[in-house]
């Protein structure tokens, strides 16, 4: 018994490549860095053979279009029975109650290496390092507990223009092995921006995902947005990125230290976006139930160390929660999102 053949959200079929185990993120970053270097070299010197087929808009106009690999990575038989200790570390860090139920953010951590493996493929057209996480949308359809055996899939889809480059969705799905043909119990869509790339067939630029759900006011200059009354304040120490990097495996250098972040153009290390979103998810607490939709749009990076004000409040119709985080001194929005019980 295998699950239904995977396809993108637009219905395009995907070839399945089954990996024996979930890849380790550290090695993927090394590959990603190398591939990013080759892609960057290819953009600088269009004559060189490059691993990715993407070409910058400032190229000679003969660039071949950017295309995504029509492949879904799959790993079956992923055990969780040994994850209790790691799960509890995650839960303590994110202020989740310590239980054997995997929060949606933990499943993101679990599936993230497979999505990253897609992004470091030779035929993936964009560089892993330097990509900007714009938004994330997750649906958890029921409780996943320690001991469940899981199947994880990941692929890239929906390459589309963004006013500052191109954006792409990395989709990951988690199924319980015991229900192979069933709908995924967890589905996450991570939207990334690759700056400086353009799609040759660019028509009307798509609005970034970050702006379609809201009023787009996160692009407003600092000081012109009026924050609500806060419900909480997070004092994020200098080690926040290292701590989340340790439990998530996401040791992207922009999160680890001021020095490594400077190499990528940030004045200091920045918090993982998913750390902030998962803190907000934890803040909602029991009201979210066992099945929920959890979204986030990232507006500006959270520099570390730093203190941010947050408002996590029931939304107007009382079915879920909306949240927003901002810099209390400059009234600049960092992120916003929603948690809605399903």
């Amino acid at each position: 018994m295998t699950a239904a053949a995977p396809a993108t959200s637009a219905g395009e079929p995907l070839r399945v490549e089954t990996l024996p185990t979930l890849p380790g993120l550290g090695a993927l970053y090394a590959r990603g860095a190398a591939a990013s270097g080759r892609i960057a070299a290819g953009r600088a010197m269009p004559g060189l053979p490059v691993i990715g087929q993407g070409r910058a808009a400032e190229g000679d106009g003969e660039a071949r279009p950017l295309t995504l690999p029509d492949v879904a990575h799959r790993v079956t038989g992923v055990p969780t029975v040994d994850l209790a200790h790691h799960l509890h570390d995650y839960q303590r860090l994110l202020h989740e109650p310590v239980t054997d139920v995997l929060p949606a953010g933990y499943l993101h951590v679990l599936a993230f290496p497979l999505a990253t493996a897609v992004m470091v493929r030779g035929d993936f057209p964009l560089p892993l390092l330097g990509m900007v996480h714009l938004a994330n949308a997750v649906e958890l359809r029921g409780p996943v507990v320690v001991g469940d055996v899981l199947e994880v899939r990941a692929w890239a889809e929906n390459l589309r223009p963004h006013k500052r480059g191109v954006q792409v969705d990395l989709v990951a799905e988690v199924r319980r092995q015991a229900e192979p043909g069933g709908a995924p119990v967890w589905r996450g869509v991570s939207t990334y921006l690759a700056k400086g790339f353009h799609l040759p067939w660019t028509g009307e630029p798509d609005l970034p995902a970050a702006a379609t759900g809201g009023d787009g006011d996160e692009r407003a200059p600092a000081g012109t947005w009026t924050p609500p009354l806060p419900t909480g304040r997070w004092a994020l120490g200098p080690g926040t990125g290292r701590a989340y990097g340790a439990v998530s495996g996401d040791r992207n250098p922009i999160h680890l230290s001021a020095l490594s972040a400077k190499a990528f153009g940030f004045p200091r290390a920045i918090a993982h976006g998913m750390y902030t979103a998962a803190r907000a998810l934890a803040d909602v607490g029991h009201a979210r139930g066992d099945a929920y939709r959890w979204t986030v749009e990232f507006a500006s990076p959270v520099l570390l160390p730093g203190t941010i004000d947050v408002a996590v409040t029931p939304d107007g119709d009382g079915t879920g929660f909306a949240y927003v985080g901002w810099n209390g001194r400059r009234h600049r929005q960092h992120f916003r999102g929603a948690v809605t019980p399903l």
Binding site: L229, P230, T231, G232, R233, W234, A235, D283
Partner: peptide, 17 residues
């Protein structure tokens, strides 16, 4: 513990409301 806001900051919010 649950909000990270000091008692004074909490009361400042209530005062503003």
């Amino acid at each position: 513990p649950r909000t990270g806001l000091s008692m004074g900051e909490h009361q400042a919010i209530t005062t503003a409301r």
